[in-house]
Simulated assay, not measured.
Amino acid sequence: MDLTVVSYAIYLLISLGLTVWVARTLSRNGRVFLADVLHGNEKLADAVNHLLVVGFYLVNLGFIALYLRDDSTITDTRGVFEALSRNLGVVLLVLGVMHLGNVYALNKFRRRGIMDREQVPPVPPQGYAGEQGPWAAPVSPAGGH
């Protein structure tokens, strides 16, 4: 068997295994994070989590498939290891960047949600006794203050 094909097979096995492992880890641990971001809405957290996992798989599997091609011919064991380290290194970097991007985006949503929960409703302005409008101070029926 051609060593280039062996390199492709090993690359696919390792990169697919890594993608599945990372996706399952992110899904399992990210669910808790999403539930917090979505104010405890478990059903919505599960739906968003599933959509994120599907998107993660699509992008990573597409990248793995596109990056499979290698223009060089591998003639020895050293070439197999060099091709694998180059290709797997790029796949790992892409997985890491995608993970950091997801965490960054979710953290922004979480911070916005925390700020929304902590905001005190605005206090209406205090009006003067003779002013008209919704901001005016209440006047007693007898005209006194």
Rank of each mutant, 00 (worst) to 15 (best):
G130H: 09
L26W: 02
L93W: 08
V5R: 12
I64A: 06
R110C: 01
H50I: 06
E131G: 01
P141E: 14
N41E: 12
R86K: 07
V120F: 03
A105D: 02
A65E: 07
L95Y: 03
G40Y: 06
D70C: 04
M98W: 03
L106R: 03
L26N: 10
Y57W: 12
R117I: 00
F109M: 14
I114E: 13
L18C: 13
F109K: 07
A23N: 11
L38F: 15
V120M: 07
E82A: 08
V97Q: 03
A65H: 10
S72K: 09
A137V: 05
T19F: 05
I10W: 00
V54K: 13
V48S: 06
V54Y: 14
T25N: 15
V37A: 15
W135L: 12
G30I: 04
V53L: 14
P138L: 04
F109C: 09
P125C: 01
L34P: 03
H50Y: 08
V90E: 05
G55F: 08
L26M: 12
V139A: 04
P141W: 11
A9T: 12
L61Q: 04
D2S: 14
L66F: 12
K43H: 13
N87Y: 00
E82C: 01
F109Y: 09
P138Q: 03
V37M: 13
V94R: 07
A83N: 13
V48W: 06
D116Y: 03
A47H: 11
N29K: 14
N102Q: 13
H39R: 15
S7C: 11
V139R: 13
A47Y: 11
M1R: 06
Y11F: 15
Y8I: 02
E82M: 09
Q126C: 01
I114V: 14
G55D: 05
K108S: 10
Q132W: 08
T73R: 12
V22K: 06
L34C: 06
Y104A: 15
M1F: 05
L51F: 15
L38W: 07
Q132R: 13
F63W: 05
T19W: 03
L38K: 09
Y128T: 10
V22Y: 07
I64H: 03
V94G: 08
A105H: 04
G144F: 13
F81R: 01
G55C: 04
L12V: 03
S27H: 12
S7N: 06
L52Y: 08
P138F: 05
Y8N: 14
L52K: 07
H50P: 00
N29C: 04
F56T: 09
V94F: 12
T73F: 07
G96V: 03
A65S: 14
R112D: 12
